[in-house]
Amino acid sequence: MPELNDDELRKLFQKAGHEQAPDALHPAIMEQVMGTGTAPAVKPLIAPRQWLWVVLVLAAVTALVWILSTLVPHDAASGFTSPLHLDLSGILQALQYSKWAAMAMVLAFALTLVDRMLSGAHHRASH
């Protein structure tokens, strides 16, 4: 017997149709959905997982700055020179003592708090 071709197989599957979901499925899903209390609408901009990355990057940068700063000879007249012949002392000092860096971090923290508060408020309002 010649084998069934693509069109014939399609016709066969279409003739059989989809399995009929039990009548209880729809109400069971809706009951769970209405009862979950989970509003999918608004999520905080920074997810907990992303926070982990932020902390890791921040820790790595801090460690790098600290390690490099220990290598800078404080009494050297010409300042610390990296293997790439770049003068890093100015950058390191700026990173260590910059008010701007500290203010940026405080602002980021404040914005995150606002973000979380807003998403929480939306969450409560939608239920």
Binding site: H18, A21, P22, M34
Partner: peptide, 15 residues
């Protein structure tokens, strides 16, 4: 509740 419409449309396919 609008999710019910999606369930209605796709329940047989998902099942």
């Amino acid at each position: 509740r609008a999710f019910g419409e999606l369930v209605q449309r796709y329940q047989h396919l998902v099942y």
